[in-house]
Amino acid sequence: MQYRKRENLTVQSVDEETLILDLDSNHIHQLNPTASFIWELCGGGISVDRLTELFAENYDIDGKTARVDVENVVRQLLDLGLIKTD
């Protein structure tokens, strides 16, 4: 399954964080640096396996820990409607 960013969001990076304005739900979301890293990778469509590889490499952590973190963030981004599946 591929994950990609939802359209029609207004986005601005601030330091290592990301602010996402969703005018459909009238919410503004603040992503911390790790969520921002994953969000950015979702630009062109990406699997959890590939996200995990890149996340583990970037944060220098083992694959099992990275997988848990990635799945948590992806689930939250899906729940918030900020990413979608293909």
Binding site: Q12, V14, E17, L19, I28, H29, Q30
Partner: peptide, 24 residues
């Protein structure tokens, strides 16, 4: 953090639609 501050400023701004990209 600047991100948190930006979100809080956004939430307390009154005329966001008068500005580019909805004031973000």
């Amino acid at each position: 953090s600047k991100g948190e501050a930006g979100a809080r400023i956004y939430s307390n701004a009154l005329n966001l639609l008068a500005h580019a990209r909805y004031g973000l």
